[in-house]
Amino acid sequence: MRVVMFGYQTWGHRTLKALLDSEHDVVMVVTHPQSEHAYEKIWSDSVAELAEEHGVPVVIRNRPDDDELFQRLKEADPDIIVANNWRTWIPPHIYTLPRHGTLNVHDSLLPKYAGFSPLIWALINGESEVGVTAHMMDEVLDAGDIVRQEAITVGPTDTATDLFHKTVDLIAPVTIGALDLIAAGQTEFAKQDRTQASFFHKRAEEDIRINWDWPADVLARLVRAQSAPYPAAFTFHRGKRLEVLSAVVSEGVYGGTPGRIFYREGEGVAIVAGADARTGRNHGLAITRVRTEDGRELPATEYFKSMGGYLTDRP
């Protein structure tokens, strides 16, 4: 089939590579301009450069809603558009233009975790599986019929970085597998159960601030979800920002006030956690490694010279 690809960053790059390696003919690529946004500089392999290396025409757009782009798309005469990590709304006259419509590739197990940063949100929420879904685009974001979907298990110590590397390897088989079904004439696909749908916003600074009222297991997953190269989860100690690079749920149960620097446990320092910590039934968050405001990384047992005092969500 003749394919136009809409995509950006490493997800789009992997999608384009899979298309170029397939029997399908990539006739045009549409991608975003390079961004200075913190999250968009992560996993930022260039779709434009890969397309140019293979002699594929490239169009750069923030939004795909101008007449010039529409005319170029009509001239390209695609059988299908394939989109992955396109960051702005694609209007109906664009996604319905090809004879087979538009296939969107999304890094979650839809209908759950539509929208942005699905792997990070899924890890924070303790999901047992994550994956990649190829679905037909319609008027509701990430809500169209599912053509193909594959899942991987979330391990007990997996970070968001680990899950990125595992799911990005699913892009090629999911995308090409879906295209092969469409090329073979299949037109009926699985409807999404909209009662199970969830929709998440982009990650921002506020979303990595540690709230000590959260249970320790959720905080431990937040720390894993904000693994390098993502910006680390942070708290404040004595008015200065302190990034938490690694942490686990404590073995012991600690009662008192959330955020209290309480007890040395193994290789970590246990912090009281949970809104109901006063009951004395909660495990704490055992912080094992931190980074200070001036960039020093060190074990928590070296940073916390003595017990007592509090970690807070504000200076």
Rank of each mutant, 00 (worst) to 15 (best):
K240E: 13
H106V: 00
A228Q: 14
L109F: 05
V29M: 13
P111Y: 10
L311N: 10
R291I: 06
T10C: 01
E68W: 12
G131F: 00
K17W: 06
V130N: 01
D138C: 06
A273N: 03
M5D: 05
D158W: 10
H165E: 14
L103M: 10
F116I: 05
I146D: 10
P64Y: 10
L16G: 09
R296A: 08
L97H: 06
A151Y: 03
G309F: 01
T292Y: 03
T312H: 11
A122R: 04
I287D: 14
E188T: 07
D213N: 14
F70D: 10
T157D: 12
A216D: 06
A76P: 09
N125E: 11
E75T: 07
R224P: 04
T31E: 09
F6R: 00
M1I: 02
E75M: 08
Q226V: 02
R278W: 15
K202C: 11
K240W: 03
T10R: 08
A275H: 12
S108G: 10
I94P: 11
W43M: 12
N62P: 01
I152Q: 00
E206P: 12
R260N: 01
N125T: 00
A83F: 04
L141N: 09
D207A: 10
L110V: 07
T133A: 03
D21A: 13
H106C: 04
D158R: 05
K17H: 05
K112E: 13
L119Q: 09
I120D: 03
A184N: 08
P64S: 10
A114G: 15
V82E: 02
T88I: 03
P118R: 09
S108V: 11
G115V: 03
S227P: 01
V248C: 06
A277H: 08
R72G: 08
R264F: 15
G252M: 05
T153E: 15
L311G: 09
L141H: 12
G284C: 10
G115R: 03
D66C: 15
M307L: 14
V248E: 14
I60Y: 10
T175F: 02
